[in-house]
Simulated scan of single mutants.
Amino acid sequence: MTIKETAYAKINLALHVRRRREDGYHELETLFAFVDCGDFLTARSAQHDSVETIGEFAGGIENPFDNLVAKALSVLPHPDGLAITLEKNLPIAAGLGGGSADAGAVFRIVRERHGLPDDWRERAAKLGADVPACVESVACIGRGTGTELLPVKNDLSGMPVLLVNPRKPVSTGPVFAAWDGVDRGPMPEGTVDDITRKGRNDLLFPAQQFCPEIAQVLEDMNDSDPYRVGMSGSGATCWAIYKTADHRDKAARELAEQEPQWWMMRGNLR
């Protein structure tokens, strides 16, 4: 039996950092959203678990047996082995939760074959703060370190979106460490559209200290007259939402002509 899953790209439509915690993490409020494209996983029955990584960004994973796909397999009970091929289409250290999305896809694969244990949320959270949200991969609000999830009315589902990354990896830890510690207020309430329009990303300024190209990406994307534009997570990937697919595709073509070295992905919000 072969199961195929998309590891949907995660984007943060708002990310409010409230305080540094004593455990070294940060208290935050974020609006998770997901794009209907990303990495792809193919799982087949096997005697033993194995992970093979292919695709444009496969080389960015130093040890394929120590990535989040393998770790997700190790924390989930399953009576038979799974041979998983991971097609890595999302850039590494890009603010898209690529590894977390891959782990979330593994949870869905195991759920389809065998079901998940009752404590799957705790198991997911131990793999990374974004992993619980990536299991269902639907828009939701994250609190705490991002693992306390709340539902939200998604009135932007289906909207065309463009992802752009200047091909500069940005590590999450240093960006959080560079946050100035100023609480700029809570994330607004309301629908996905409300929060996207009124929210912000508190990691934008510290991320630009490590990747100044983010400012150029945002400027060029703003010039394409999007409905809304912002940076995802700790960067460097930026997103732009458009009212029509034609508008998005035109913007993508023009950006590709201006900056052919940038990575881009087109999709729609789930």
Rank of each mutant, 00 (worst) to 15 (best):
E5V: 12
I11V: 15
N12I: 05
L13K: 04
L13T: 03
L15K: 08
H16W: 06
V17E: 10
R18E: 13
R20C: 12
E22I: 13
D23L: 09
D23S: 05
D23A: 07
Y25N: 11
E27V: 05
A33N: 05
A33L: 03
F34E: 04
C37W: 07
C37S: 15
A43Q: 02
S50P: 04
T53R: 09
T53A: 14
G55W: 07
E56R: 14
A58Y: 07
G59P: 09
G60C: 13
G60R: 10
E62G: 15
E62K: 15
E62A: 15
P64K: 05
P64V: 07
F65E: 15
L68H: 06
L73V: 02
H78F: 12
H78S: 08
D80C: 01
D80M: 06
D80I: 02
D80L: 11
I84W: 02
I84M: 00
T85S: 12
K88G: 04
K88A: 12
P91I: 12
P91N: 13
A94M: 07
G95Y: 01
G95R: 08
G95S: 09
G97Q: 11
G97M: 06
G99M: 14
D102I: 11
D102K: 10
R111Y: 08
R113P: 04
H114K: 01
G115M: 05
D118F: 12
W120S: 06
E122I: 10
L127F: 10
L127K: 02
V131K: 04
V135Y: 04
E136C: 11
S137W: 01
V138A: 12
I141H: 02
I141S: 02
I141E: 04
R143L: 08
T147K: 04
L149N: 11
L150I: 00
P151F: 09
P151D: 08
N154E: 09
N154K: 06
S157E: 00
P160D: 03
V161N: 06
L163H: 10
V164L: 14
N165H: 13
P166K: 06
P166H: 12
V170G: 11
V175F: 06
A177W: 08
A178T: 03
G181N: 05
R184T: 11
G185A: 11
P186H: 08
M187H: 08
M187S: 01
P188K: 03
E189L: 05
G190E: 01
T191K: 01
D194Y: 01
I195G: 02
G199V: 00
R200I: 02
N201Y: 05
N201A: 11
D202V: 08
A207K: 04
Q209F: 07
C211V: 07
A215S: 14
Q216I: 11
L218D: 07
D220W: 07
D220N: 12
Y227H: 11
Y227D: 10
V229P: 09
S234K: 09
T237W: 00
I241E: 03
R248L: 03
D249Y: 01
K250W: 00
R253G: 07
E254H: 10
L255M: 09
A256P: 10
E257R: 13
Q258V: 02
E259P: 00
P260M: 10
W262V: 08
W263R: 12
R266Q: 15
G267F: 09
G267W: 03
L269F: 03
R270K: 15
